[in-house]
Write a protein that binds this DNA or RNA. Structure first.
Length: 278
DNA sequence: AAAGACGCCAACCGCCCCACT
DNA sequence: AAGTGGGGCGGTTGGCGTCTT
């Protein structure tokens, strides 16, 4: 018995993606949308595992991705969400527009962990390092921690925000006494949180999701190759237009079917570009 | 200038969840 | 209710670039 491997292991390429592979994948997604990832490699003419295609798309090629380091407010938000959710990176990423779970996870492991330790905060429990709770374990699983923090609501931000981002009746922004994160430098940290008004409003649930600033997008190298490959056509500009549309409705409610409207014009231009190249 | 140490991040792996039959 | 398959998630790793000695 046993499950079939997600892809035929023989002849499946691994390792870094080439610009050509990226182009093929982008082209295919724009043409067909996100359907069955298992079938994507075959249909797109890629010798890759479907999983690998999905990861490449979601973590790198998606046009709505922000690139570059997390901002101060994003970082603080990650810390707060981690205090509540534990290592559920996808859930955390869902609250940070344009960021992927992988990106946040990497950033957590390489930057935030160290910062918290430097501040004397245990990155696992979010409790002060020196304050060893007597007779209790120093770390807990994310599951336990999650349910625990759901009850305790350590973060003032999260006190106001339930799982769906709706505001609850408790709208006071005064930090609770047992809030370990803010107890360190309460004013400084809370101010840094408040710097990003839109983000804060969104989290407090009384505002629209913050708009993605597409003017600050940095294109991946291969995306630039992609542009170069197909001439003057700039798919990222069109994707930006698409994203502005998405933002009107909420990007998560916006399936890739929406490509159907935009994609025709994109593909027309794409084909023209390819012809020019030939 | 060279070599080793370190840091970062893209990508992979394996498990889990959920929808479908 | 149980089995199966696909997608998603979190942990881990490998390779590359940068820093230090």
């Amino acid at each position: 018995m046993g499950r079939q491997p997600c892809c035929d292991k023989l002849g499946v390429k691994k390792g870094p993606w080439t610009a050509e592979e990226d182009n093929k994948l982008i082209n295919f997604i724009l043409t067909s949308g996100q359907c069955c990832w298992r079938a994507v490699p075959k249909l797109a003419g890629l010798r890759r595992c479907g999983k690998s295609c999905r990861l490449r798309w979601t973590n790198y090629l998606r046009p709505d991705l922000k690139r570059g380091l997390l901002t101060e407010s994003e970082e603080q938000l990650v810390i707060d969400l981690h205090a509540r959710l534990g290592n559920r990176w996808s859930k955390i990423a869902a609250r940070l527009p344009g960021r992927t779970d992988n990106e946040i996870k990497n950033h957590w492991n390489t930057h935030i962990k160290k910062k918290l330790i430097k501040r004397g905060i245990d990155p696992v429990t979010h409790e002060p390092l020196e304050k060893e709770p007597g007779g209790t374990k120093t770390s807990s699983s994310s599951e336990e921690q999650s349910s625990e923090s759901e009850n305790n609501n350590h973060s003032p931000l999260l006190q106001n925000t339930n799982a769906t981002g709706n505001s609850e009746e408790n709208s006071s922004s005064s930090p609770p006494e047992n809030c370990s994160i803010l107890s360190d430098e309460p004013h400084k940290l809370f101010e840094s949180l408040c710097e990003d008004d839109k983000l804060l409003s969104y989290l407090l649930g009384d505002d629209e999701p913050p708009l993605v600033d597409t003017t600050t997008w940095e294109l991946p190298n291969n995306a630039q190759n992609f542009n170069h490959d197909i001439g003057n056509f700039n798919p990222w500009d069109d994707c930006a237009t698409w994203l502005f549309d998405c933002q009107d409705f909420g990007i998560h409610d916006f399936g890739l079917d929406c490509f159907n409207e935009v994609e025709m014009s994109i593909l027309d231009t794409l084909e023209m570009g390819n012809k020019q190249q030939k």
